[in-house]
Amino acid sequence: MKRPGPLLTLLAGLVLGLFMLTLNSTSGTKTASSSYREQSPSASPKTPAKTSPTPSATPSPTPSPSKPPVANANYAGRTDDDAASVAVSVRDGKAVAYFCDGRYKEAWLRGRVNNDGSMKLTAPNGAVLDGRIEQGRKIHGTVKDEGRPYTFTADKAVKPSGLWRATAKVRGAKIDGGWIVLPNGRQTGIVTRDGKTAAAPRIDPETGTVTVDGRQLTARPVTP
């Protein structure tokens, strides 16, 4: 039996070497691939969500205090042309006024007084009074009657000065009298008898008594 020659031995060694080389190459590829997968993150890191700052509550503006209502008071005065008298009585934000020339022209006006002292009073006959109380001491304004404007100033009046009125029936006639007593004692008034006007007799401002057509009446201070 012949022994294998050197050529067969060399061939066997060559085959073994190729096998080992192929095995090493395969192991190295797997190792590198595994290493890459371990180093690569499986997912991108999440960016933390930004939180909007909570807006601080804005304080509500403090409302400016409103002006208090005007004080209750009476006012009396004359028009700038001295043609008529004007009296105004203010109570609880309301006002009543009397415009009178002492002969035949008169108007009773009513309305509200705003907190700033301004007022617009109206009468059934169409007369209008626009005025404003100034520092609680006087009223400057205008009365427009029968299309004619009369500017006036009425100073604060203390009883017995101010606005007076009396109503009654005398000898079957309806009597309606109005009087304005100025702080200096001067009086202006009209008495209407069943719709007919005439100058009014003087009243006693201390008691309000007045005699009309032979009958004694009592005039009283007028308030809204």
Results as ranks from 00 to 15, higher is better:
68 P>T: 10
108 W>Y: 01
15 V>C: 05
180 I>S: 02
20 M>N: 03
124 P>K: 05
215 R>G: 07
58 T>S: 12
6 P>R: 09
49 A>E: 13
23 L>G: 13
169 K>M: 11
16 L>G: 04
7 L>I: 10
16 L>H: 01
158 V>F: 11
208 G>H: 09
40 S>Q: 08
150 Y>W: 06
78 R>Y: 08
196 K>H: 02
46 K>D: 15
96 V>G: 01
86 V>K: 03
84 A>F: 02
66 S>L: 13
165 R>G: 11
89 S>Q: 15
126 G>L: 00
125 N>C: 11
188 T>H: 03
20 M>T: 00
195 G>M: 01
97 A>W: 06
149 P>M: 00
73 A>Y: 00
125 N>P: 03
150 Y>N: 08
118 S>F: 06
136 G>A: 12
203 I>L: 15
110 R>N: 11
140 H>S: 10
127 A>K: 11
17 G>L: 05
77 G>Q: 04
202 R>A: 15
137 R>G: 01
44 S>Y: 14
111 G>S: 14
121 L>T: 06
159 K>D: 10
160 P>F: 07
38 E>P: 02
145 D>V: 13
83 A>G: 07
133 I>T: 04
63 P>R: 00
19 F>C: 01
59 P>S: 08
7 L>K: 12
29 T>S: 02
114 N>I: 11
89 S>C: 13
14 L>F: 15
15 V>E: 02
151 T>G: 09
166 A>Y: 08
194 D>F: 06
188 T>D: 05
34 S>R: 12
130 D>I: 00
69 P>A: 13
137 R>Y: 10
138 K>I: 08
209 T>D: 14
119 M>E: 04
170 V>E: 05
131 G>Y: 05
113 V>Q: 07
132 R>F: 12
138 K>W: 10
214 G>W: 04
108 W>P: 01
128 V>H: 01
204 D>F: 14
189 G>V: 03
162 G>C: 03
51 T>W: 10
146 E>P: 00
139 I>K: 15
71 A>I: 14
14 L>D: 08
108 W>G: 06
183 P>R: 11
24 N>P: 04
25 S>V: 07
54 T>K: 14
179 W>D: 09
165 R>N: 01
218 T>S: 09
